[in-house]
């Protein structure tokens, strides 16, 4: 619950200024904090009175204390570092292959015929269902986890970049021809920048599934990282540690999402100025 509510302030800060202003002036942002705060208070009361047993869910105060403790002992920073590394490597590999394949199939009919059918078939596979195979193929080390993230990341980026390339305004391509641009220049000045907005949509989607894939992969077999921390806590009925782990997952997800939005604002200024008018 508290996790979901975290989204509001982050959005308000990173959205284009006029919209955020409108929301603040018109909607009175603090009113949106009443219900989540009430929920946390009710939760705390329920825990303190024994209505909500700790083995089901720890009290908010306990969770906060545990979080501080986990940070001080270094458990949490280490776990975050391990998980972050898995996501980053997996994301880099997946993004590279997803965008690379989209370029191949987006920029030529032959490429499309070669790549797209395979991608469409693979897309239909439930990739979490691949975990048993991955374990057989790659063991239980880092490789299957990173690969699962890479696989999850590559599809949204492939599909969106491909759609972005194909969606570029044909009229602009005509202009490029009348201006004497060659094929390489056409791709550089018209096709790639034109596909960028859609690619960034894919980037946000793929970062979302990257964290999801990591959580799933870390549940299965891990001896380090956030998933390991959570699984280990389950053995000892430490619901406080589990909740801290979940909060960290969502905070990291929101952080990467904010980074992409920052990137969007930088890369798509030509659109933002238009929208802000």
């Amino acid at each position: 619950m508290a996790v979901l509510e975290l989204e509001t302030p982050v959005q308000a800060e990173t959205r284009p200024a006029p919209r955020a202003q409108r929301r603040r002036l018109g909607g009175k942002a603090w009113q949106r904090w009443i219900s989540p705060l009430a929920l946390v208070v009710a939760w705390q009361v329920a825990s303190s009175t024994g209505l909500l047993p700790t083995r089901l869910l720890a009290a908010p105060s306990t969770i906060a204390a545990t979080a501080v403790e986990l940070i001080q002992t270094g458990t949490l920073p280490t776990a975050i570092a391990v998980s972050l590394q898995r996501v980053l490597i997996g994301f880099a590999a997946g993004a590279l292959s997803g965008v690379g394949l989209a370029l191949i199939s987006g920029l030529s009919r032959k490429g499309e015929n070669a790549v797209d059918p395979i991608m469409q078939m693979l897309r239909a596979l439930p990739f979490f269902g691949l975990i048993p195979l991955f374990i057989l193929w790659f063991g239980i080390g880092e490789t299957p986890k990173v690969l699962l993230v890479a696989l999850a990341v590559s599809f949204p980026l492939y599909l969106n970049t491909f759609a972005g390339i194909r969606g570029v305004d044909g009229k602009l391509a005509e202009v490029a021809r009348t201006l004497g641009l060659g094929r390489a220049q056409l791709i550089r000045h018209i096709v790639l920048p034109g596909a960028l907005p859609q690619t960034l949509v894919g980037l946000r989607q793929s970062l979302g599934v990257a964290w999801l894939a990591l959580i799933v992969a870390e549940q299965v077999n891990a001896n380090a990282g956030l998933g390991y921390m959570i699984n280990d806590a389950r053995e000892f009925l430490r619901t406080d540690v589990i909740v801290v782990g979940l909060l960290v997952y969502s905070a990291l997800g929101l952080l990467t999402d904010a980074l992409v939005r920052l990137l969007e604002r930088r890369a798509l200024t030509w659109r933002r100025e238009f929208l802000a008018r």
Partner: peptide
């Protein structure tokens, strides 16, 4: 040959001067 179209067809992600110098 140069063409000016019915809709100006400026490349939206290039500033005006970059549109002029394109190609």
């Amino acid at each position: 040959v140069a063409v000016a179209f019915q809709e100006p067809r400026l490349v939206p992600w290039k500033r005006v001067h970059a549109n002029i110098t394109l190609g």
